[in-house]
Design a protein around this nucleic acid. Sequence first.
DNA 1: AGTTGTGTTGAAGA
DNA 2: ATCTTCAACACAAC
Length: 265
Amino acid sequence: MDEGGRTEKIKNFGRFKKEIKGRKIQKIWRRGKNIFFDLSGGKTLLVHQKLTGHLLFGRWKKRGEKWEAIDKGPLAEDPMNKFLHLILPLDDGNMLALSDLRKFAKIELWDKKGLEESEYLKALGEEPLDNTFTFKKFKEALREKRGKIKQVLMDQSVIAGIGNIYSDEILWAAKIYPTKNTAELREPDLKRIYLAMRKILKKAVELRGESFSDFRDLEGKKGFFDEYRKVYRRKGQECGRCGAVIKRIKLGGRSAHFCPKCQIR
DNA sequence: AGTTGTGTTGAAGA
DNA sequence: ATCTTCAACACAAC
């Protein structure tokens, strides 16, 4: 036990290997930006990919110091799939791997019970695409949090799962200025944000994510959200809706991209 | 060639 | 308490 006995996180790699070996994956689930693997014997593997991490499924073999993908395709060819830091061999010869350029990703082995009771999980807000997350609940969640709408949308304790790309895209679709305070939002504004949130996130899932940088799916393949991206990283380009020039500002250390003309302040 | 920016989060400082 | 800044790291683009 560590950290006041609340959790049984394993930070030591030797112990990690010993503890995880031989356990069966019983269930894989997600909460916000966290992925969980429930394992036999009451353990749960927590994966947070952070900025540049992504899980891969395939087969690799070690050549010298380097692990190389056995089959042809993106696992072998795409450089973004070659920042391997952890490989978990499964019993059928396949492997689960983590590729992470910047090495921020987090992988921890928890006691399932400790995880369920943890502050970490309890602190997560609503699931944006859950059918039970109605407009009414959305309004309530936002009413409780004062602040600039972009920052509130990205606050994982309010809504779990929205990051910098999709918050910009949601606010563009909803025609709301990123610095607008939540207290000033009226019913129709909130409605547009709610609908845009559902629409953009569903689209992002459908298009399998944004891969202009390093994100790849489990097979190492790129997603296509980039073809749908309207404002994020489009500073200096024309707004696809009104033609004004897209701006970028700093908001709490993150960059916010928006159209200064058709997003209402 | 040095500086700035990058999808996240949590810790430290004010 | 609550906000802002910075660090973890590696690389691309200005």
